[in-house]
Simulated assay, not measured.
Amino acid sequence: MTDAIPASPPLALVIFDCDGVLIDSEPISLATLTRGLNGIGLAIDLDAVRERFAGTSMTSIMERVAREDGVIAPDGFVERVKAETLDAFEAELTAMAGIAEALGLLHLPFCVASSSDPVRLRRSLGLTGLLPLFEDRVFSSAQVARGKPFPDLFLFAAERMGVAPERCLVIEDSVPGVQAARAAGMRVVGFTGGGHWGHDRTGRDLLAAGAATVFSAHAELGRILAAG
């Protein structure tokens, strides 16, 4: 692991993924998704769901399940999983430790670009008290043609923020997210502070996908930015 971010023009924008980076939602949402997939006949455990689907949209997940597993979701399945996830969020969701303080110290513009649908995204940020920190700088994969690992969402966010891709730094916790950032021509670092990482915070798969480094506490964000 190295702390060096490849030399390039000065950073002008930090783009945060949401789930697993800003909010500790992945243990909740992945568990809900696993139960739902089991209920429609897909024999899969939580670890496999995390490995295959973390960081991707429900649309992409169900397309893969149909293509790779031959399981077609019944009508209303996606909406039911989304509703159950939001219900669980109401009771359990928390912001990632130290993120509000880290955002308050940022000397660069920042935004969020997430695979979550707009309703879940804004609700999640609202429940954790983070939404006022982002205001209208909240972008969802529902606003683009293709979700992660394609670059569309990050390029859309950069365009809306008026910043060239090469001057953006993306903070991601998933392999599709890292791949999307790299495909967009952006610098990217991996975050491994979420509860879904368990005891292994090395982020080997994020580094293998192209993250310049990984970090597991938002208190380190200043150091990460200084390296860029």
Rank of each mutant, 00 (worst) to 15 (best):
Met1Ala: 13
Met1Thr: 10
Thr2Leu: 12
Asp3Tyr: 07
Ala4Phe: 13
Ala4Asn: 10
Ile5Gln: 01
Ser8Phe: 07
Pro9Gln: 08
Leu11Gln: 08
Ala12Glu: 15
Val14Arg: 01
Asp17Met: 03
Cys18His: 06
Asp24Gln: 07
Ser25Phe: 07
Glu26Trp: 02
Ile28Tyr: 00
Ser29Ala: 13
Leu30Phe: 09
Leu30Ala: 13
Ala31Tyr: 02
Arg35Cys: 12
Gly36Glu: 02
Leu37His: 01
Leu46Glu: 13
Ala48Glu: 13
Ala48Val: 09
Arg50His: 14
Arg50Cys: 12
Arg52Ala: 15
Arg52Lys: 12
Gly55Asn: 07
Thr56Cys: 08
Thr56Val: 15
Met58Arg: 05
Met58Trp: 05
Thr59Lys: 12
Ile61Met: 02
Ile61Asp: 05
Glu63Pro: 00
Arg64Trp: 14
Val65His: 03
Glu68Arg: 04
Asp69Ile: 04
Asp75Arg: 12
Arg80Gln: 14
Arg80Ala: 15
Val81Ala: 03
Ala83His: 08
Ala83Pro: 02
Glu84His: 05
Glu84Met: 08
Thr85Cys: 03
Asp87Leu: 07
Ala91Arg: 12
Ala91Val: 14
Leu93Met: 05
Thr94Gly: 09
Thr94Pro: 00
Thr94Phe: 06
Gly98Leu: 10
Gly98Asn: 12
Ala100Ser: 11
Glu101Gly: 12
Glu101Phe: 05
Ala102Leu: 12
Gly104Trp: 15
Leu105His: 15
Leu105Arg: 15
Leu106Asn: 01
Leu106Pro: 02
His107Cys: 13
Pro109Thr: 06
Phe110Glu: 00
Phe110Tyr: 14
Phe110Trp: 09
Val112Phe: 01
Ser114Phe: 01
Asp117Ser: 10
Pro118Cys: 10
Arg123Val: 10
Leu127Asn: 11
Thr128Tyr: 06
Leu133Cys: 06
Phe134Trp: 08
Phe134Cys: 04
Glu135Trp: 10
Arg137Leu: 09
Phe139Pro: 00
Ala142Asp: 14
Ala145Cys: 08
Ala145Lys: 09
Gly147His: 06
Gly147Thr: 04
Gly147Gln: 06
Pro149Phe: 08
Pro149Asp: 11
Pro151Glu: 09
Asp152His: 04
Leu153Glu: 05
Leu155Asn: 05
Phe156Arg: 00
Ala157Tyr: 00
Ala158Gly: 11
Arg160Ile: 09
Met161His: 02
Gly162Arg: 03
Gly162Glu: 07
Val163Asp: 04
Ala164Trp: 04
Pro165Cys: 01
Arg167Glu: 10
Arg167Gln: 14
Glu172Leu: 06
Pro176Ser: 10
Pro176Cys: 09
Gln179Trp: 12
Ala180Ser: 15
Ala183Gly: 11
Met186Leu: 08
Arg187Gly: 09
Val188Met: 03
Val188Gly: 03
Val188Ser: 02
Gly195Pro: 02
Trp197Asn: 09
Asp200Tyr: 13
Asp200Ile: 14
Arg201Trp: 11
Thr202Asn: 13
Gly203Pro: 03
Arg204Cys: 14
Leu206Gln: 07
Leu206Asn: 06
Ala211Tyr: 10
Ala211Pro: 01
Thr213Trp: 02
Thr213Tyr: 00
His218Phe: 14
Leu225Val: 13
Ala226Val: 07
Ala227Gln: 11
Ala227Trp: 01
Gly228Trp: 03
